[in-house]
Simulated scan of single mutants.
Amino acid sequence: IKKPAQQQVIAPEMPLSAQARLETEDIEFLYDMEFFINRELGENAGVAFDDEAFRKALSVNGDSIIIIADDEVIKVHVHSKTPGDVLNLALHYGEITQIHILNMREQHRDLLTAGMDIAPSPELFAEIPPEAARSMEEAVLPADEMAPYGFIAVSSGDGIAEIFQSLGVDVVLSGGQTMNPSTEDFVKAVRSIAAEQVFILPNNSNIVLAAEQARELLEDERRITVIPSKTIPQGMAAAFAFQEDESAETNRDQMLEAISRVQSGQVTHAVRDTQYDELDIKAGHYIGIHNSKIVATDETMLQACEGLLKQMMESGDEVVTILEGDEADPEVTAALAAWLEEQYPDAEVEVHLGGQPVYYYLFSVES
Rank of each mutant, 00 (worst) to 15 (best):
residue 55 R to Q: 08
residue 352 H to I: 05
residue 190 V to M: 09
residue 123 E to P: 12
residue 321 T to S: 07
residue 238 A to V: 03
residue 84 G to S: 02
residue 310 K to E: 12
residue 274 T to N: 10
residue 304 A to P: 13
residue 102 L to N: 11
residue 22 L to P: 00
residue 285 H to W: 09
residue 122 P to Q: 14
residue 32 D to P: 00
residue 93 Y to E: 00
residue 103 N to H: 11
residue 270 A to E: 08
residue 352 H to T: 01
residue 213 Q to S: 04
residue 206 N to R: 04
residue 264 S to D: 02
residue 348 E to R: 00
residue 78 V to I: 11
residue 53 A to T: 01
residue 342 E to P: 05
residue 280 D to Y: 06
residue 10 I to Q: 11
residue 154 V to K: 06
residue 51 D to I: 10
residue 81 K to A: 01
residue 210 A to Y: 13
residue 173 L to G: 05
residue 298 D to C: 01
residue 79 H to F: 14
residue 351 V to Q: 06
residue 277 D to Q: 07
residue 78 V to A: 04
residue 220 D to P: 09
residue 200 I to M: 09
residue 194 A to F: 00
residue 220 D to H: 05
residue 243 Q to P: 05
residue 179 M to K: 14
residue 245 D to E: 02
residue 264 S to K: 12
residue 203 N to Q: 04
residue 140 V to I: 10
residue 63 D to W: 12
residue 264 S to N: 07
residue 109 R to W: 01
residue 247 S to P: 14
residue 319 V to H: 14
residue 167 L to H: 05
residue 95 E to N: 05
residue 222 R to E: 10
residue 141 L to N: 12
residue 286 Y to F: 11
residue 159 G to M: 08
residue 3 K to P: 09
residue 203 N to A: 15
residue 50 D to K: 14
residue 286 Y to P: 15
residue 105 R to E: 14
residue 235 G to Y: 05
residue 11 A to T: 07
residue 347 A to D: 12
residue 242 F to S: 00
residue 182 S to M: 14
residue 190 V to G: 01
residue 53 A to E: 08
residue 87 L to C: 09
residue 205 S to V: 09
residue 351 V to I: 15
residue 344 Y to R: 13
residue 195 A to L: 03
residue 1 I to Q: 04
residue 254 Q to T: 13
residue 180 N to W: 12
residue 80 S to N: 12
residue 35 F to R: 06
residue 211 A to M: 06
residue 142 P to Q: 04
residue 208 V to F: 13
residue 218 L to N: 10
residue 215 R to W: 15
residue 171 V to Q: 13
residue 337 A to P: 03
residue 72 E to M: 11
residue 331 E to W: 06
residue 142 P to F: 06
residue 38 N to I: 03
residue 42 G to K: 01
residue 224 I to N: 13
residue 138 E to F: 03
residue 335 A to L: 06
residue 245 D to N: 05
residue 363 F to S: 08
residue 48 A to K: 08
residue 99 I to W: 03
residue 186 F to T: 07
residue 48 A to N: 11
residue 128 I to L: 09
residue 114 A to K: 12
residue 257 E to T: 14
residue 226 V to P: 03
residue 305 C to M: 10
residue 33 M to A: 02
residue 72 E to V: 13
residue 63 D to S: 10
residue 328 A to E: 03
residue 183 T to F: 03
residue 192 S to Y: 15
residue 36 F to T: 03
residue 358 V to L: 12
